[in-house]
Design a protein around this nucleic acid. Sequence first.
DNA 1: ACATTAATGATATCGTATTATCGTTATCAG
DNA 2: CTGATAACGATAATACGATATCATTAATGT
Lengths: 127, 127
Amino acid sequence: MGRHSDYRRLIWRVLGAAAGPLSAEDLRDALAETGIGIATVYRHLKDGLSDGDLVCVELPGGPKRFEPADQPHHHYFECVECQAVFDLVGCPGGLDRLVPPGFEMDRHEVILSGRCHDCVSSGREAN
Amino acid sequence: MGRHSDYRRLIWRVLGAAAGPLSAEDLRDALAETGIGIATVYRHLKDGLSDGDLVCVELPGGPKRFEPADQPHHHYFECVECQAVFDLVGCPGGLDRLVPPGFEMDRHEVILSGRCHDCVSSGREAN
DNA sequence: ACATTAATGATATCGTATTATCGTTATCAG
DNA sequence: CTGATAACGATAATACGATATCATTAATGT
């Protein structure tokens, strides 16, 4: 095997412990001490997608983010200050009544945005 | 004045008649007969944003889309077949209860996806 | 007619996220 | 030790949306 075949394990561990989906850069930063290169991060993320272990989350105006595939249906909160994305629990009902006649909905996404706990309590302000 | 100062009017007319927000490319295609260039489209869109006449809508994995600013709060349906985006009327309630303690929500977005009326009735299938 | 100005189109350039290339290095088998 | 293999890092290349540049042309005023 190659030099550090445990990078994959490290990435999985970081993703598993995260409060929400992480981007490739987030992961590289989280593992900066190990000296991991961005190419390696993308490689493992790609493998994870093919293997079905990871899912990709796209939010408006940001890079692709990734999280373990074995999570129940949920949505996201994006902090406008620190750009972090947090998983939310639960799902609002009543979405079906928004669907126009003749349309067929098979997915939905709910994205809340505002300031996260840390940014609120540290008083960071939008400018 | 310049050659065709009515491009702006044309763009506004197309946006006003559209079933949802349009991208710069959508607009160029809609006005293809006029020979409008993509630079002109972007120029007028940019002006519209500065003037507050237009708003920008970003959906995951797509280009920026634009629509008139004088519309009531609403959400979107994106067709996975033809990629068109449609305005929806109404807004599901109960989003506040998704906000974790200590977080402050100031915006939300709801995006439904599936197949639009035309793609359903014409039998186009996802592959 | 002539000069001025503003709008335009072609295209070059940019920014950013992502992927591909390739030489290097660690690990392992014989 | 030697050769093969797989993982790696640096970085070149790509994709694509958006912007900047610049010469051209239409409308306007004189």
